[in-house]
C-alpha cells in the first residue's frame, strides 16, 4: 500500500512538472540558455500562467475527488458526485445570480472573486440540501440520482432564463466564466481556492472515523456513538466548500468527483476512509493534471475544454460502477 502511495506521489510530481513545462507556447526550458529577454518572457509565462494553472488543476482534482468520496459514503450511493447530483449546477446558478442578477454588486478584483465564490457555495449548498432531504425519504439509489439530475437541470434552466434577461456586458462576463477553464485565475483567486480546499479537506479528515462507521449503515453507526446528524452537517459543509469553490473558479467540471473514488477503491482495494481519502485526493490531483496536459494538445495551438477530457476518462469508470451496482453491490 505504501508503494502505491509513493507511486502516485511520483506520478503527481512528474505530471505537475510536465504540466508546467508543456503548454501552448511549446516546451519551456526556463533555466536553459537563451538571451536575457527570452528568459524573462519564459519566467513570466511560467509564474503568471503555467504555475497557477497547474496549481489550480491540482486543487480542483483534490477538491472534486474528496467531495465525491464524501458524497458517496454519506448518501450510501456509489454514483453520487458533485456533478451528477446537481451540486455543480447549483453552484453555477449561484454564480449566475451573482454575475447576471446583481451586476451592480459585481465590483472588481478580489471583492468580485469572493462574491463569485460565496454565491457558488450558497448555490451548491442549496442543491445539496435538497438532495439530502430527498434521500432521507427515498432510499432508492437510482431515484435519488434522477432527482439530483432534475434539480441540476432546473438550476441550469434558471441560469438560461437569467441569461435571457441580462445585459450584454453582464452576459459576456458570465459566458466567459461558464466556459470554464483551469487557467486565467489571478493570484488572489488561487489563494481563496487554496484556503477553501484546505478547509474542506480538514473537515473531511476529521470525519474519517465516522465515515468508516457509516459504511455499515446509520443504525450501526448510531449504536457505536456516531451522531449521524452532526457528521452529515460537517460533510455537507465540506462538500459545499470543496465542490462550490472548484465550480466558482473553474466552471462545472464533470466526472472527476464520481470516478476518482472508484479508481482509488480499485487500486487500493480498501474501504477504509483513512486510506481512501488520501488515495482519492492523490489520484484526483493526478487525473486533473493529466487532463489539463492532454487538453493543451502539445504541439498544436488548440486548447480543448478540460471538461471534455475529464468526461472521456471518467465515464468508462462510471459505466463500470453502474454495471457492478446492478449486481447488488453498494460500493
Amino acid at each position: 500500500m505504501k508503494l502505491k502511495f509513493i507511486l502516485f506521489l511520483v506520478l503527481l510530481a512528474a505530471l505537475f512538472a510536465a504540466d508546467v513545462l508543456v503548454g501552448s507556447t511549446g516546451v519551456l526550458w526556463p533555466f536553459g540558455g537563451g538571451d536575457a529577454s527570452a528568459g524573462e518572457i519564459a519566467q513570466r509565462i511560467l509564474f503568471d500562467f503555467r504555475l497557477p494553472k497547474a496549481a489550480v488543476a491540482l486543487l480542483a482534482g483534490i477538491a472534486l475527488a474528496a467531495s465525491g468520496l464524501l458524497m458517496q459514503t454519506v448518501f450510501r450511493n456509489p454514483l453520487a458526485g458533485p456533478y451528477v447530483l446537481g451540486v455543480s449546477s447549483g453552484a453555477s446558478l449561484g454564480v449566475a445570480v451573482f454575475l447576471l442578477g446583481l451586476p451592480m454588486l459585481g465590483g472588481a478584483g478580489i471583492a468580485r472573486d469572493l462574491g463569485v465564490a460565496i454565491s457558488a457555495w450558497i448555490g451548491a449548498a442549496a442543491i445539496l440540501l435538497l438532495v439530502m432531504a430527498v434521500s432521507a425519504r427515498i432510499k432508492d439509489i437510482m431515484a435519488v440520482l434522477i432527482l439530483g439530475m432534475m434539480f441540476g437541470s432546473a438550476a441550469s434552466a434558471f441560469v438560461d432564463v437569467l441569461q435571457y434577461f441580462s445585459s450584454d456586458t453582464a452576459l459576456k462576463g458570465f459566458v466567459i466564466w461558464s466556459m470554464g477553464s483551469l487557467g486565467g485565475l489571478s493570484h488572489g483567486q488561487l489563494l481563496i481556492m487554496a484556503v477553501c480546499v484546505a478547509g474542506g479537506l480538514l473537515l473531511a479528515a476529521g470525519s474519517v472515523k465516522s465515515l468508516n462507521l457509516l459504511l455499515l449503515g446509520e443504525g450501526y453507526a448510531r449504536s457505536m456513538g456516531v451522531s449521524v446528524k452532526r457528521v452529515r452537517g460537517v460533510i455537507f459543509l465540506a462538500t459545499s466548500l470543496l465542490a462550490g469553490s472548484v465550480t466558482a473558479f473553474c466552471g462545472p467540471i464533470g466526472f472527476v468527483g464520481i470516478a476518482v473514488p472508484h479508481i482509488a477503491r480499485m487500486v487500493f482495494r480498501r474501504a477504509d476512509h483513512r486510506v481512501l481519502l488520501p488515495a482519492s485526493v492523490l489520484i484526483g490531483a493526478d487525473m486533473m493534471l493529466f487532463c489539463d496536459l492532454v487538453s493543451q494538445l502539445p504541439g498544436s495551438d488548440l486548447i480543448l475544454p478540460v471538461n471534455t477530457i475529464t468526461a472521456l476518462l471518467g465515464i468508462p469508470v462510471v459505466v463500470m460502477v453502474v454495471v457492478n451496482s446492478k449486481r447488488g453491490r453498494m460500493m
Binding site: L216, Y220, S223, R265, F268, R329
Partner: peptide, 10 residues
C-alpha cells in the same frame, strides 16, 4: 441491526 452491509473491499 438488520442492515445489510454490501461494501466492497471491507
Amino acid at each position: 441491526t438488520t442492515e445489510h452491509v454490501a461494501v466492497a473491499h471491507l
